[in-house]
């Protein structure tokens, strides 16, 4: 009975990087403020490259806990 909730949560987590990359990048279309000397839009891309494996790890944990 909880399985559809877990499934919905997994899909929601999967959508985070999708929206961050596809929609977030063109919206954060600016150079300032720079992060460690890197323009904001590129820093955003780098941030989400690092966060995507973490999202997948969370999804995998949920899948395993579901059995």
């Amino acid at each position: 009975m909880n399985s559809w909730r877990t499934r919905a949560l997994r899909i929601a987590i999967a959508l985070l990087p999708v929206l961050a990359f596809a929609v977030g990048t063109p919206l954060l279309n600016r150079v300032e403020p720079q992060i460690l000397g890197i323009p904001l839009n590129l820093a955003w891309v780098i941030l989400w490259i690092l966060l995507t494996p973490i999202c997948l790890l969370a999804i995998e944990r949920l899948r395993r806990s579901q059995g």
Partner: peptide, 10 residues
Amino acid sequence: IPAYGAIGYL
């Protein structure tokens, strides 16, 4: 390019 890659992995 890295943006579509990440979506591809998902």
